[in-house]
Amino acid sequence: MKRIPACLWSWYRGGTFRGFQRQAEGPTVQEVLERALREAGVASGGVMPAGRTDRGVHARMQVVSLRLQPGDSAEALAARLPARLPPELGLCVARRPHPSFHSQWSAAGKTYRYRVQLAGKVAPEWLPYVLEVAREPRLAPYDIAPGRLAELLGMAVGQRDFSAFHESSSPRKPRTLESATVKELGGGLFELILRGDAFARYQVRYLVGSALLTAAGGLPEERWRAALESGEAIPGLKAAAAGLVLWEVRYPPELDPFTPAERAAPPGLPEGPPFLGAPEG
């Protein structure tokens, strides 16, 4: 008998993990999740995520594909898995998807949110989840205007070669940044929302860090523009992982395993940082 396809919407706080992908030196999200699945009676070959996240990066919505034994179901798994997960990793929804669904290859796009403290003191509950510019050596001497930051990120919107802003291990090809906005959360805390069709390794962190550096005057605007227009290498800044959240993975409506209501109010998602905010639209 064939195994049953299933997909999970999981969340995690990345501070205790060495990224998503299993590796020799753990713990990783994949390692911990697959161990919990085995304890819950899932004898599969492993999980396939919508994409990897790096060490320290958080996820409000990470989607993984897996296979269940005949006679099992996603609904039954959802009832027995959460008790086997640590406090830093949880489950929102488990579902049997469309037969053609694949967590990674079916994805139509992703949204990331990055939290940065531009002024004032970081609230205690946000300390593990933000970049504080006053503590970043290349940013600390400068004042960064939110409007200027929004202007620079707006220049990055469109289809282009983002190779100046990602690791060479990712293929060099056109990618589309559909939107980039800056939202004030209060108390000097801001949220940068980046929506695109695909992102290369470290792309969000280099875009955010280099935009901050340019807004601070530490990188000339002409270098920023050249990097965007031609892929010219720049002495950019990779923003700290702690501020980054994989916010949402989007799928074509005919393949999306999750309802609009679930996307608007994810069941089982913890309240408080780093997952606050209205759903991406």
Rank of each mutant, 00 (worst) to 15 (best):
G90W: 05
L276D: 09
R60Q: 11
R160N: 05
Y202K: 11
A242Y: 02
Q203W: 02
L81P: 03
G236E: 04
Y206R: 14
R80N: 10
L91T: 10
G196V: 08
Y206E: 09
A150V: 10
M1G: 13
R80T: 15
W9H: 10
P260A: 09
G188Q: 08
M1Q: 12
G71V: 12
E262A: 15
H98T: 00
W9E: 01
P257W: 00
G186M: 14
G277N: 11
G218M: 04
A150K: 10
P146T: 11
A242P: 07
W247F: 14
A180V: 10
R160G: 11
G268I: 11
A226R: 15
A123W: 04
F101H: 00
S73C: 08
F165C: 06
L152N: 02
A94G: 05
A240L: 14
L68W: 04
E280R: 09
R195G: 00
G19L: 06
E222F: 11
A216H: 03
A123M: 08
A150E: 13
P252I: 01
P220Y: 11
A40W: 06
E232Y: 07
F275C: 14
A79P: 03
A164T: 09
D72T: 04
D197S: 15
G109E: 04
G236Q: 05
G236K: 07
Q203R: 06
L37S: 03
Q30G: 09
G277W: 09
A180N: 05
V122M: 03
H98G: 00
M48E: 05
R148H: 12
A211I: 06
R95T: 00
G268H: 13
G46L: 13
P257S: 01
R96A: 00
L192S: 06
H102I: 00
F162H: 05
Y251F: 12
G196E: 06
G41A: 10
E271D: 11
W9V: 03
G196S: 05
W11L: 04
G217P: 08
G14C: 10
A278G: 08
Q62M: 15
L244Q: 03
L213G: 02
R18D: 02
T176R: 15
P124W: 13
A145V: 11
R175C: 14
R172M: 10
L118H: 09
D161C: 14
I4M: 07
V204L: 08
V122F: 03
A239S: 14
L192Y: 07
G236F: 06
K2N: 14
L185Y: 01
L207K: 08
I234P: 02
P279L: 12
A123N: 02
G218F: 07
G120P: 14
D72R: 08
M1F: 08
S168A: 15
P128G: 12
Y112V: 09
P171V: 11
L66G: 03
Y114I: 14
G90P: 11
A140K: 15
Y206D: 06
L213K: 14
R205Q: 07
Y12H: 15
Q21V: 15
S210M: 08
G158E: 09
P279Q: 06
T111Q: 02
G281Q: 13
A241T: 13
G154T: 13
W9N: 01
P82L: 02
G71N: 10
P257K: 00
P252W: 01
E178F: 02
